[in-house]
Amino acid sequence: MSKRIDVEHLNVYYGDFLAVEDVNINIDSRSVTAFIGPSGCGKSTFLRTLNRMHEVIPGAYAKGKVMLDGEDLYGKGVDPVTVRSMVGMVFQRPNPFPTMSIRDNVLAGVKLNNKKISRSAADELVESSLKGANLWNEVKDRLDKPGSGLSGGQQQRLCIARTMAVKPDVVLMDEPCSALDPISTIAIEDLIHELKEQFTVVIVTHNMQQAQRVADKTAFFNIEGTGKPGKLVEFDETATIFQNPKQKATEDYVSGRFG
């Protein structure tokens, strides 16, 4: 399953502070979309509104519409818990549960909400998810060992497997490679290419080469100054953003003349 995302007039607040102003964006299903921009421009904040994770921070809220195949995630009576099981998330630093084995980590999301799963179905899901995350061959002999014993790159792929096991419609990635070495980064990027066959992928990255390597479309966010809200400046095909941007600010940023 894969769904498209349409955002209309979204404003994100931390208490009284407007962090991201008036975002309108249409993200196709089965595509990879990259968010780029300077630090503090609100791209991570905006990403977290797509699965309502920003609400975890006290005082944070969003106004506007985020439509997942036409269904508003911020509509009345929508439970953020349901939203998050449909829109999965991979974080900046790998965060497998240290108290669980590799196998239990993959099943962590599946076992939520009192869902029962048979032993054989669980085995199959663990295998398919780990294969999907290109991790199966490395861990198949030590599934009952703690996930924290893996390398950083393996841990991040374990987190991706854990997210895939829930079978979400969308996978959000918040700088998934920023804590990884180049080899592990390549492994994750290869994986992102495969992920888009099943999921809608949205990735925040500071690495512009990475955006060019993995993304079909790229959105550039910018901030005019401290205390001002972040804005979506330009959203287009990745090639257009990097070679022929319409906005001066985008061109300055992608050519390194920023700041």
């Binding site: 994770m53 975890v56 818990v81 998050r84 998330m89 974080f91 987190c159 997210t163 829930v166």
Partner: peptide
């Protein structure tokens, strides 16, 4: 956050 993001 890992747990919440899985729909916990």
């Amino acid at each position: 956050e890992a747990s919440l993001a899985l729909g916990a």
